[in-house]
């Protein structure tokens, strides 16, 4: 009788190739890291790394270009979609994506994102919505929830004084030039998997030339929300999801046709 064969060892999960070896500067538990990793995985799996150009924003993710092992440019605050427009028009064969936070995209960059979508630029936007300005120390953002305490709204966001949170995905979905607009969340494993699928679809939209694509990802900011990392994931599920519903706001019928 022969000895039982030694079981093979399979690597189930490892760092994606599109990541550099650098450790991110993000706070412990910040879901920016998850979003970065999902993008890297999707680009690896679609084999787009050699022709992808990313556009980094201003905000916590200002150093995103250091963590991705691909071409990257750094845009002025809020102007990533404008820069991506230029790159995509000059190099239409390349895949161009921007990675922006809510301060960058929904506040100072509002004009650029609206007009990029209105023109139907064939770019992909990854929008990280954590309802706060992270890098500058936790001030109120356009996406801050009503009643939420921030350093510039210490008694909670007063909607009579400062208005209501802006829902970017819903707004952009009304534009004719957009091809794929969805909102996903990063608060648990199930939703992270869904977010990865959405990123696939967004890059697929661009590859097929179906217009502007955006994935909004609800993210956490444990440092500025002043709660621990696992509680901040609960905060997303309990407080943010009711205000920012997770849904497909616009999916070009071409995308679902071939997949079905």
């Amino acid at each position: 009788m022969t000895a039982p064969a030694k079981p093979e060892v399979k690597v189930v999960f490892q760092r994606p190739e599109s990541f550099t070896d650098l450790t991110t500067h993000y706070c412990p538990g910040c879901t920016h890291g998850v979003a970065h990793r999902l993008i890297a995985e999707v680009i690896d799996e679609m084999g787009l790394r050699e022709k992808t150009i990313g556009v980094a924003p201003v905000g916590c993710s200002v150093f995103a270009y250091k963590y991705f092992n691909m071409d990257f440019v750094e845009a002025p605050h809020g102007r990533a979609p404008a820069m991506a427009t230029g790159i995509k028009r000059v190099l239409p064969q390349n895949t161009v994506f921007t990675y922006q936070g809510d301060g960058d995209l929904a506040s100072i960059g509002m004009a650029e994102i609206m007009h990029a979508a209105a023109r139907g630029e064939n770019i992909t936007v990854i929008f990280i919505n954590n309802a706060i300005y992270g890098m500058t120390g936790g001030q109120m953002a356009p996406t801050t929830l009503p009643g939420m305490t921030t350093t510039s709204s210490p008694f909670g966001r007063d909607v009579e004084l400062t208005g209501f949170p802006i829902r970017m995905s819903e707004m952009l979905a009304t534009m004719d030039g957009t091809g794929y607009i969805v909102r996903r969340s990063l608060h648990d494993v199930k939703n992270i998997r869904k977010a990865k699928k959405a990123l696939f679809m967004a890059f697929e939209t661009q590859e097929r030339g179906l217009g502007f694509s955006m994935v909004e990802l609800l993210s956490s900011c444990p440092t500025n929300w002043k709660i621990d990392p696992s509680k901040s994931l609960e905060f997303i599920a309990e407080r943010m999801v009711p205000v920012f519903p997770l849904d497909d706001f616009k999916v070009n019928p071409e995308l679902t046709k071939k997949r079905a």
Partner: peptide
């Protein structure tokens, strides 16, 4: 999958 820093490598034994 939940790790924000891609710090974890996961291995699994596959019986031959």
């Amino acid at each position: 999958i939940i790790c924000p820093d891609a710090a974890i490598t996961v291995f699994r034994e596959v019986p031959v």
